[in-house]
Design a protein around this nucleic acid. Structure first.
Lengths: 138, 138
DNA sequence: AGTACAATGATACAATTATACAATGAGACA
DNA sequence: TGTCTCATTGTATAATTGTATCATTGTACT
């Protein structure tokens, strides 16, 4: 799943999981009928207790966009209407931007410095046609 | 832990705890990822109230060298502090940039679109003097 | 004495984890 | 077919961990 959650943000993990999954559904990365990871497998991936994931799933279930079934698994039921999806998507992107700057700040970089690095990254991507490999200069 | 605290020194207990733990980390007796004692267990050991330990932990958390997580515990921080070597810092920043674009792509945004959003975020930061609040429009 | 302030303690609370439990489904076998 | 067993799934509840808020204590200063 590769969900990005921040243990140091002060935002409860279960709420972060709710948001990240809503974003994936809004971005059609998860379509109706798709099965979500089991509470245990996602918990293992995120290194948290599976009850924390279960709590997130329960919230999503109560809002009706997924369906959790004991013994079977959890499945996506509805995708929000296009205009709502676009709004969620926009919010997800600005939120991602905010998190990125916050992470950069923790590494001692000002927003300006990090923005420069991001620009370089785009330039490199335009040259090579792909995002640079994390192991490229080891 | 066996922290040396002097109750008669006149120096507040929570400040002594802060100093003792800083020393342990500086001496690599506590490594990144290591879990510190819970506020209650350390309080029991030192015969003080656990709020006093919590206060010490909060100070260390604010300086970024440990991370306290409700319900989970407190851990020595993994990410290198800003004063780490420039090379490591640069590498961490480019890796962060790469991951950010990958996440944006997962949300259905091209690098160009996401870059625009990043620029807007910097502009907004320059206006308000802070990175925008995650809860601003919930 | 009285006041103000910082340090510490008491209590209630929220997030996360640990443990035991119940529902479902796949495979073995009569 | 039926049903047994067992692994896998989500559920329920209590224990553990840090947080928030206010009360208490001690000290310095008038």
């Amino acid at each position: 799943m590769n969900l990005e959650i921040d243990f140091r943000s002060g935002i409860p993990i279960y709420l972060q999981v709710v948001e990240r999954i809503r974003e994936r559904i809004a971005a059609s990365q998860l379509a109706p009928g798709d099965q979500l990871p089991t509470v245990r497998s996602l918990a293992l991936e995120l290194r948290v207790n599976f009850n924390t994931i279960a709590r997130a799933y329960r919230i999503l279930d109560e809002t009706g966009i997924i369906s959790t079934q004991q013994g079977r698994g959890t499945y996506v039921t509805n995708t929000p209407p296009p205009e709502a999806s676009e709004k969620i998507r926009q919010k997800a992107l600005t939120e991602l931007a905010r998190r990125s700057f916050a992470d950069a700040e923790r590494l001692g970089a000002s927003p300006e410095e990090f923005n420069q690095i991001l620009k370089d990254q785009v330039a490199h991507w335009q040259q090579t046609g792909r995002l640079s490999n994390p192991d490229s200069d080891n």
